[in-house]
Amino acid sequence: MQPSPTPSPTPSRSNLAGWLYVSPLVLVLVPFFVAPILVVLAASFFATDGFGGLTPGFTLASYVEVLHSALTLKLYLATIKFTVLTWIFTLIIGFLVAYFLVFHVRNQLLAIGLFLLCTVPFWTSNIIRMISWIPLLGKEGLINQALLALGVIRQPLEVLLFSDLAVVIAYVHQLTIFMIVPIFNSMARIDKKLIEAAIDAGASRFDIMRLIVVPMSKSGIALGTIFVVSIVMGDFFVVKVMSGGGSASVVSAFYEDVGVLQYPTAAASAVLLTLVLVAIVSLILRTVDIRQEITR
């Protein structure tokens, strides 16, 4: 080994530089992510006097209660139903929008413009976005009136608003953009020559979609899926508002728990949900090697 002309920094100094690089992230993550999780984790093992008072200690009573409750399974099934439906619709719509933007809009400026158009719903708050469904889906809303006028139905459809359907519609409206962005990103990196080569080989549009575009957009689909699944499973507000209180989700249950001062059961539910989500995300990451796909 030749001695290097300039002395390399001492290990402690290079360590310090490394810590400085990550310190902004650490400063954000520790108080706002790690600490709350630890608090919730600790609380889930505490005992309670039933009136909001916590007794520090270690008991699995809250977990036993949550896992023994028939309600828990019901809530998970309901949440998973919303998640799967939302995932299917956001995936189909998001994929098609991204496909259109990448492969059919020749003008790049137009593509960027249309892309920004997809973000328009986000210019208003979540609440307004949900309220604005009422004039459309309500009993005297546009859709019911149009269908009545056309004579398709005699009675206004009650199922449109304050129902599971309304919940899924609101989720899809809200979350499709989280599918579009990562899928658009991975599709945009597909060399257009590959599409031409596929056409040259005699592939139909459907073949190109099935054999080239979908497999090469896998990483985007996986990322979008992670966004959508974790947001839907962690949400209670949309379910509450759009179902008119008729449906509940896992989170809405422990929100209720907090309301009646049952902190340890709420914490145990939260920990359980986190574990379920971690399992789902790691399952997704197992099927698609995102790191490899992104560096490709």
């Binding site: 060399d191 031409e196 080569a197 040259d200 080989a201 592939a203 073949d207 090469m216 490709r296």
Partner: peptide
């Protein structure tokens, strides 16, 4: 049939699958 500049091979398919591609879509 065309052989493209810089080849335009399908990166997610093996050599065999690349070569069989045209037969597959037929």
């Amino acid at each position: 049939a065309m052989m493209f500049q810089s080849y335009a091979l399908f990166p997610h398919l093996t050599v065999r699958e690349n070569i069989a591609f045209a037969l597959r879509v037929r």
